[in-house]
Design a protein around this nucleic acid. Structure first.
Lengths: 349, 349
DNA sequence: GGATGATGTGGAATCGGTTCCAGGCGAATG
DNA sequence: CATTCGCCTGGAACCGATTCCACATCATCC
């Protein structure tokens, strides 16, 4: 209820002095500052965000756009963004909308209809939709998480490299019949990067003839269903699977268990993510930490906020291999690679 | 860049007329309105949210407070809230912070330091922490999801009733040795409600002596670890489990499978939630739809927004039983209840 | 034909802050 | 001693919208 004028009156100073005392900008004597702060505390004074925003031209509020919140990567990244923003005293305005939906288009209209963000973080933008351009048209700093773009700053792991490492691991163990599980025709951009890393690695290993993509929904039940299909038929069954992500990988492991196929002796599985369930399923995977990516995006955004001329920068992280026990040499082959199985799963204590 | 003054000039009218034409408030001739709208479109005019907020006193922005975003219930509820808010042209400002953390306290300071929300939705507030009072002190409408409070409006299922139904189902099948899995000493409010529903039902069935709580983290790996422990020892093994939620229930099913215990013939499991993985594990459960709860909370909030004197209202939903095949009579007993197993799992097609 | 009311428009105040500018004061400088 | 400078303060303009009020016009109703 009470504005800064009230605070000023109570402290016996002018509005301008009160403002300076509270924001810390400009000269104010220690004694005056104390009195003003005391008056503000007494009155329970809260500055109006609208008024501050109008006067300063910045809202201290960041828009965050993403396709899902109920999926591991996005939820984790969102929490990372959220935490990093709050450390800096910035608010987070959320826009969640799946690609190619009416809601998504509506969000873009909303975005473009209202101006009121100091910056924008877009998680999992699909580049082809021309959305990057529309965001740039808002003339505020934009940082992406996942995906590539020359026009905006981006934080992401090298997805192609991650699936390449996953595939190489299996090749090195002696596998030849390695299937890529997940993705498919309507795959998202990241998924396609991972698919091409697999292809490249198979080609390098002179296994071009063995390249095989089995599509699935990019979810745990999706991986399960596709794997039941794939593994149920003994003639189609590979000795190893590279999964597009851990959720699909875990679905495949559950499917294998149900079918009585032993992991890793009869089937090796590698994922990408290091999902919170990965340890529980002893899944060998390439770890990325979306929470850190979110924090890095905020960091990058803040640099853009301070220096409006800063050129777009790509922060490309490296996924790290986490060796657990869902991978082993195929029954038919010999391998010279030794697996370190000493890791104690975190959930078992 | 261009404000409403620019639009007005281009349309050859005053600022006030331009404002009326664009907001739709007050009299404007059709011809004038058309000209103003055209001018606004030509200039790509976007009203400043700060200025609108200052002038009207409302920000069209709702604060949403929750403990986690990376857990099923909260992620789903958040998506529901988000979607419902956007349908109404309201923005969502997110505050995610775990209970009893420095961040949480910081968020409360933030909340109380800035005023700038038309309303507030709090998901999973723990009543004991005096947080409800602090939110009420903000003098804006508050709606809770999950939990009880006389002071604010709340949307939730009847948790006690849900676990009661779950327990009764098992009792009716002939089980006596029924364990409640999950929760524990530091359980959240909802968890304790579910625990007491179980107790009450066991007492009603004259099975007071069989009441047994096995604590676990309220996560899938937590349920797995606790169930491995519980089921690994044949002497402690119950014939049925009521889980505090589906994630714990699924953890238990996975544990049972790993230990070679057959579900449902050797072990029945009932959950609460109808988690997205529930169908895949054929889990019998009591369904709640957090997405709808989120939407209902928005609906309720909007009513409070329109009528500031409206009394706090509790919307208490009923969880509905979803019968799948994780439940059966115990091997030792006979049962008169027939289970309908005709449901085709959605993920299998 | 004058009063009434609905419609349409512009000027000016207002929301609640920040910030520019001018001015006062005391200490240091030339 | 006059200037200059650093520190401190208040007055007023300003940010960009909405909204109150006054006024003009025109049709309608006694």
């Amino acid at each position: 209820m009470s504005g800064i004028a009230e605070v000023a009156r109570r402290a016996g100073v002018s509005k301008s002095t009160a403002s300076r005392a509270l924001t810390g900008a400009g000269y104010v004597s220690d004694e005056t500052r104390r009195r003003v702060q005391q008056a503000a505390a007494d009155l329970g004074y809260r500055p109006s965000t609208s008024a501050v925003g109008l006067a300063t031209g910045r809202t201290r509020s960041i828009g965050v756009l993403l396709p899902y919140v109920n999926r591991w990567f996005f939820a984790e990244a969102l929490e990372g963004v959220q935490e990093a923003l709050h450390e800096r005293g910035l608010d987070l305005t959320l826009y969640a909308a799946r690609p190619d939906t009416a809601t998504r288009r509506h969000v873009f209209r909303q975005f473009l209809t209202r101006k009121g963000f100091d910056g924008l973080i877009a998680i999992g933008l699909e580049p082809q939709d021309g959305e990057v351009e529309r965001l740039l048209a808002m003339r505020i700093p934009v940082v992406g998480v996942v995906g590539t773009s020359d026009a905006i700053s981006v934080v992401a792991i090298d997805d192609e490299h991650a699936s390449r490492r996953a595939t190489e691991l299996l090749v090195d163990l002696g596998h030849r019949d390695i299937v890529f599980l997940g993705g498919g025709a309507s795959a998202a951009h990241v998924d396609r990067l991972r698919m091409s890393g697999y292809s490249a690695s198979m080609t390098d290993a002179a296994l071009t003839g063995h390249i095989r993509f089995v599509p699935s929904d990019v979810t745990l039940p999706g991986g399960y269903a596709a794997a039941v299909d794939l593994l149920g038929d003994a003639r189609r069954r590979p000795t190893a699977i590279v999964a597009v992500c851990d959720e699909v990988a875990i679905g495949a492991i559950i499917a294998a268990r149900r079918l009585g196929i032993r992991v890793p002796s009869e089937l090796s599985v590698v994922g990408i993510d290091d999902h919170e369930y990965a340890a529980m399923f002893s899944l060998t995977t390439l770890r990325q930490v979306p929470r850190e990516q979110g924090a890095a995006a905020v960091e990058l955004l803040q640099r853009h906020l301070h220096d409006r001329e800063m050129a777009p920068t790509a922060v490309r992280l490296q996924a790290t291999l986490v060796m657990r026990s869902s991978t082993a040499p195929p029954l038919s082959a010999e391998s010279t690679v030794q697996i370190d199985m000493r890791e104690r799963p975190a959930w078992s204590q």
